[in-house]
Amino acid sequence: MIREPVLNALILAALLLVPLGALAMDEPFLITLATKVAIFALAGVGLNIALGLGGMVSFGHAAFFGLGGYATGVLASHALNYDPLMTEPFQIEGTTQMLVHWPVALLLSGLAALAIGALSLRTSGIFFIMITLAFAQMIFYFAISWPAYGGEDGLSIYVRSEFPGLNTLDPIQFFAIAFALLALALGFSSLIARSRFGLALQGARQNEARLRATGIGPYRIRLVAFVISGMITGLAGALFADLNRFVSPAMLSWQTSGEIIVFVILGGVGRLFGPVAGAGLYILLEHNLGGLTEYWKLPFGFLLLAVVLFARGGLIGLLAGEKRDG
């Protein structure tokens, strides 16, 4: 067994060293893979706040991931086409600046999470899962049927968005951006978990009646957590759009929601670095098994089943043992 903080540091170091090594060996594709891991992990860190800390099994986080992606895509495409977003009552131009895309992505996904959470959190269990799924599907079909932004075909971003002082077209510099945001989100997530709010949130998961008896209403606590969760996943979506220079309704699909859940479960539900370990393992398997057979998801499915049945703490639980608080 490794102590969890040590394990976390090792995981973070590995995620940093792989692309640096790839840079030295001139393997840009590896850098892109590492960037993908960082972005998926960020999406998972978001979900982990709802799922891991709050026990809210959201099957609709693709909604936030996709909205974040479309925030980048729509703003960038308007800028690249020199076509203002709107002219009445005042003119709003598109932009290629990440520093504008991100707040818009956070705002959009946060508002969506507020609306979806406010309704879904009146239910629990399987109903919560199905309602979050239903809302995400609504947004998915809306994106497909709205031709202005590519509909089913999606929307290309011809040039990756810009960040002041960096050349985002250089893979390692874009990786650095994704890595920095992931590190920030992990730090924030760790603070939240130990805070009063985190204490109440995890208390709501463990024993709702007890939380009420201490004078804390679980609904508002969960709703705020759901919004924070959706915003972080939305930010990951904004980065994902820039990574691929492309957004499409696929980002909003239920498969995407499922993948984000898989990152969290594979790595360890409620474990700070669970989503990082999970996303890393997922990409590793996809890359290796996926190279061997198109049907890699079948053995992968068995692996997932094994984790759910035998290793509830996921990869982190396997290596660092049971979760310890305080």
Binding site: G198, G203, R210, G326
Partner: peptide, 29 residues
Amino acid sequence: LASEYTVLQNVVLAVTGAQGRAFGFLRPA
């Protein structure tokens, strides 16, 4: 009780409720 929590965490949760301030995000409880 919140069974995954320690004895102290359980009571700290109660004090949090008593203070009516559950929305602190940054400081470790």
